[in-house]
Computed example of a mutant assay.
Amino acid sequence: MRIVFLLSRIEQSGVTTHTIDLARGLIDMGHQVCLITGGKILDGTNRVDDFYREFEDMGVTIKEFDTPRGSILKKTYLSITSILKVIKDIKAYTPDVVHSQSPYMTFIPWLMGIKYTTTLHILYLKKNFKFKNPTHLIAISQESYEFSKKTFGILDKNISLIHHGVSSRYAETIDDTEKIALKNKLGIPGEKLVIGFAGSISLRKGSDILTAALSEIKKEVRDKIKFVFLGGVQGSEEYLWLKKLVKEAQIEDIFIYVPFEDPKPFYDIFDIFVLPSRMESFPLVTLEAMMSQCCPIRSNTEGAYEQIDHGVNGMLFENENVQELTETLNELIQNSDLRKRLGTAAKQKALEEFTIPVMTNKTLQVYEKIRLN
């Protein structure tokens, strides 16, 4: 099968990561993939360049269009020429399926009068002339499923719920020598328990909730831990805000900041992974941490109850409830048996439900419903 992905831009986001993972799953099964995109959005790290190379290395055909910018006149001109180029590229590739990873690009296959699908990654998508209801929609969580029905009036028969999957590389831990080397690089003594986070610095991700909870951990418990914040760009406005939060919370002694890079080796030294987001979709970082056998804690926002069975393979806390997060951290830091049991069960669930092959097979079932040829 020949599949075209429409992705407005390649950036450091879950949508880009999901597109890479799905493309890899499809190619591994013998399918061909073309990515039509507005190109890279650089963010001060090397990750976006890494993402672009991943597409190239796995054999994805990449076609770029100009993202509209500048004056109104220039934007209008670029919009028209870019749309025409995308249409031309789609026709030239002669795909069996068009999959718009960016919902606001769905108007293009709609204009062409062909069948297509889109994945609804976010729950704050608004009605917009650029979004056209697809032939069949892929929801990534129960919340996005219900959102699609309520906001866009899409019928149940035209929606499939398909959870994200992540690479099995997260299940393969680095060796003890590499773990020790990474801890030494970060200045973490061997006896310390490591708690970690991976993601952007923002209110949406709950950076302030996180620092507030860490500040409330009992001193005798806090002496046992180090916290690693992996994300963002050092020196950015967001970084300066985080630095201020850390200072105000008086947690400089346990807080270690690392600008974002490949999170894989970090998961392998995390004993506990925390995601305190105020708003989510179906966060890949939780799945990556689970597959790495971290004990996961996350807020009960979108996708939480599908990812984690509370007390079975992780812990959930009420969104924005700093006290509840603090109490959960206190319990897990002090109870190694519980922590390890939850981590083991988290890995088992991730390997059973959240792998690339599982996601890809379910996606192919949608493709069969809407294929063009």
Rank of each mutant, 00 (worst) to 15 (best):
Q142N: 14
S144E: 02
S144C: 00
E146M: 14
S148V: 04
S148D: 02
S148T: 09
K150T: 15
K150M: 15
K150L: 14
T151I: 12
G153P: 01
G153F: 06
L155G: 08
L155D: 14
D156Y: 08
K157V: 11
K157H: 11
N158R: 12
N158P: 11
I159M: 06
I159R: 04
L161S: 02
I162P: 01
H163P: 04
H164L: 06
S167Q: 02
S168E: 12
Y170L: 10
A171E: 15
E172P: 00
E172M: 07
I174L: 12
D175C: 10
D175I: 12
D176E: 15
T177A: 15
T177E: 14
K179P: 01
A181W: 08
L182F: 10
I188K: 06
I188T: 05
P189Q: 13
P189W: 13
P189A: 09
G190L: 08
G190M: 05
E191Y: 13
K192E: 13
K192S: 05
L193I: 15
V194I: 10
V194G: 00
I195C: 08
I195H: 02
I195R: 02
G196E: 05
F197W: 06
A198I: 03
A198D: 05
G199Q: 08
I201Y: 04
L203V: 15
R204C: 06
R204H: 11
R204A: 09
K205S: 08
G206D: 10
G206L: 07
D208E: 15
D208Q: 15
I209P: 00
L210T: 09
T211H: 05
A212Q: 05
A213T: 07
L214R: 02
S215N: 09
E220G: 13
E220N: 10
V221W: 09
V221Q: 01
R222F: 08
R222Q: 13
D223R: 11
D223W: 06
D223Y: 01
K224Y: 03
K224I: 12
I225P: 00
I225Q: 03
F227Q: 02
F229H: 07
F229C: 01
L230I: 13
G231R: 07
G232R: 00
V233N: 08
V233W: 10
Q234I: 12
Q234P: 06
G235D: 14
S236E: 15
S236N: 09
E237M: 04
E237H: 10
E237F: 14
Y239E: 07
L240Q: 13
L240N: 15
W241S: 09
W241P: 00
L242H: 03
K244D: 15
K244E: 07
K247G: 14
Q250N: 15
Q250F: 09
I251V: 10
I251A: 00
E252Q: 12
D253M: 14
D253G: 01
I254H: 02
I254S: 06
I254T: 11
I254C: 08
F255M: 11
F255I: 11
I256E: 00
I256Q: 02
Y257E: 12
Y257I: 03
V258N: 03
V258H: 03
V258Y: 03
P259K: 07
P259G: 12
P259N: 11
